[in-house]
Design a protein around this nucleic acid. Structure first.
Lengths: 286, 286
DNA sequence: GTTCCGCATGAATCGATAG
DNA sequence: ACTATCGATTCATGCGGAA
């Protein structure tokens, strides 16, 4: 199967208009958060965040297949002692555009940013909002089932005294019994809570999320040969994972530095599928 | 220290008016979910949930001390393939009332209820919305510290000379203090993700949450002798935990069956603090 | 070749200080 | 009074060099 990776330089709001409608199976993205990444993206004012984002979601709604899914990784910042409400407002406004707010997954970041404040603990989770065009959408649950062996192995490895105390679990005593239950099964369906640590040691490029995050959703909502879109490509994690999993991919970013970097890396690892086409660097399969 | 537990039968919207303003240190509650438990609470239509709840939050704002905290355990139901938006709308409307939306904790339910749906995984988390009247509120973070992660055991067992030297050179006169911090540090501050298993041992009544959930927040936001309110008492978990932790408590419920049950149980375990007063069953300490 | 340890570094947040 | 900048605080993780 031929797989294509397309990298586009420019503003998503404009460049998305060049994409064909009903052509994308999964949109997975992590847009620049309000007031974050100021040095690269210029920083979006929290109070204007919804207005800034809505024209883009309008286009995303157009390019997504009716059976497709949009996963939005986002988290509101704390400002002036309060959580900002732009994410809530965004959800409500997107529904007016026609999006269905199907589910909210939680990404539990085990290694959250350190710090201490008198009125707040460390923020260790982010939202993964699932939107759909239609009540009927493709979902391949079996693809992300957790093999019991690996799960139990990893779990048991971490099952130290401190873990027990930390979890303060009242059912700790019943843990052995549960393990026994799980061992008999081959695989287990996951829940809507995703446990992953952030990668924080990449020198050249700091990815917003670890590979496992897009990987999980790409497996869950697409099959080989499907097409994945990331309108805020950044360091290109979504594209590289899509490529690895034999999905077509389209990435857009306004920062030429990211564009060049992803282009080069996609090219070097997968050159035989890649060719330049016009002003876009892209690879079209037959 | 004398502790009182007060149990009130009736509609929260009315009965809350009998409570004195600025008298409560912590409100912890899990209101009846929209269209859930309709056999007991009559079922609140999801579309009217906000309208139903706002008069109550108005009263809660009145009775809460300026230094107090309101923790609302809630989760929107999935209806017609979509997550309902009444929680989002509630947050926005409560801010208009004057509430500050300080934080959103996640309760990760480690053993969520099993089940399988074609378009959705098991729901393993709930929101714990924190609201405050004022930017300055009481928070006793040390009360809920957790054991440090395993990595520290291996890493910190041998605190070397280089560490001390580095610290000395950096701080100069203040040497020793920081080292002590690290050597004696066996506990760290938690994050805004709370890991607890759901309890499933209550036969007669299904408690909405395990003891550990109110316990965590009562320890975090109150001291002994403070007063905790649960306007949707249910089986009375919040009250029993408050009593155990030597906090005064007030519970309201419209279901006489719950009222009688909590009354009896509070009475049996703590009768020496308890006496009936007029139409309310209550215990007033001097 | 294992295991161990030093080290840098994160989508953070607040309060104080400065313009 | 309001915005902009800065220092202080803190913990899990993986890489790379050392034992």
């Amino acid at each position: 199967m031929k797989i294509t990776s397309q990298v586009i330089l420019g503003d998503s709001q404009e460049k998305l208009k060049d994409l064909k409608e009903n052509s994308i199976d999964l949109i997975f993205t992590s847009p620049p958060y309000a007031d974050r990444r100021n040095h690269t993206y210029g920083g979006i004012n929290p109070d204007k965040y919804v207005d800034w984002f809505l024209p883009i979601t309008e286009e995303l709604l157009r390019v997504l297949k009716p059976t497709g899914t949009f996963i939005l990784n986002i988290k509101e910042k704390a400002e002036n002692g309060e959580r900002h409400t732009y994410v809530l407002e965004l959800i409500l406004e997107m529904r007016k555009q026609g999006w269905l707010w199907t589910e909210e997954f939680i990404w539990h970041k085990k290694n959250s940013y350190p710090g201490k404040w008198p009125n707040r603990f460390r923020d260790a989770w982010e939202r993964l909002l699932q939107f759909n065009k239609d009540k009927k959408f493709n979902m391949y649950q079996e693809e992300v089932m957790v093999p019991v062996g690996d799960w139990a192995k990893a779990r048991l490895k971490n099952l130290s005294e401190t873990d027990k105390a930390r979890d303060n679990s009242k059912v700790g005593s019943g843990f052995g019994k549960k393990i026994a239950n799980w061992i008999e099964r081959e695989k287990v369906y996951p829940t809507n809570v995703v446990h992953l640590a952030t990668e924080c040691n990449n020198k050249n490029h700091s990815a917003a999320f670890p590979d496992e995050l897009p990987e999980w959703f790409i497996k869950l909502f697409t099959r080989e040969g499907d097409t994945v879109l990331d309108p805020f490509m950044g360091s290109g994690t979504t594209l590289f994972v899509a490529e690895k999993l034999k999905r077509n991919s389209v990435g857009i970013d306004i920062i030429s530095e990211y564009y060049e970097m992803v282009l080069k890396k996609i090219n070097s690892t997968n050159y035989y599928l890649f060719e330049k086409k016009g002003k876009y660097a892209s690879s079209k399969a037959k």
